[in-house]
Amino acid sequence: MNPAERRDIELDCARLINVYATLNDQARWEDLVALFTADGLMTRPTAPQDPIVGREALLAAFRARPPRTTQHICSNIVVTAETEDTASASSVILLYVDPDKPPLVGTFHDRFVRTDGVWQFSERRGGLSFQPLP
């Protein structure tokens, strides 16, 4: 792949990370789940040992959350184009949920695939960098 193709892949995948955060904050679960491949895997930063696999399971997991107001802030996004149709990334996430508590600080390690010209998450593995205060 040439440098322009590499930059396009990196930009498309970084955008996917930001779109995920936006849809999550808007509680647009169907649109969010569509960002994953049919067999996509995700672990929440607060439950990295509990993978959720497949769009149906992802949708059920998001819908099971109690209603809440959140603000996700993504940072330090580094995407690596591996091939013309695969990439990986790491990023830092701040999650604000409760105005009386500090935000959760975590990371995501992502795997992306491009199918029919569309980039999607094949894996989104989260973890916490710091444990929340009691």
Rank of each mutant, 00 (worst) to 15 (best):
E30P: 00
Y20D: 05
T22D: 15
I9H: 05
V118E: 03
L41R: 08
L95H: 10
C13T: 11
F112H: 02
N18E: 11
P103E: 09
P45I: 06
I73K: 12
A89E: 02
A87I: 06
A64Q: 07
D50T: 08
G106E: 05
T37A: 04
S91Q: 11
D85V: 15
I17E: 06
F121R: 05
P66Y: 05
A89H: 02
T37S: 13
P3L: 12
T69V: 14
R55A: 02
Q120N: 14
R15C: 12
L23R: 03
A81T: 08
P48E: 08
Q49H: 13
S91L: 14
A27H: 11
T70Y: 05
P66T: 13
L11I: 15
E123S: 12
L16V: 08
P48Y: 00
E123P: 08
I9G: 00
T69I: 14
T86D: 01
P67A: 06
F36K: 04
I17L: 14
T43R: 02
P132E: 03
D116C: 09
H72F: 02
S90T: 14
P67I: 03
W29A: 11
E82W: 07
D98I: 00
T107N: 10
P66G: 06
Q131E: 13
R28G: 07
D116Y: 10
F130I: 15
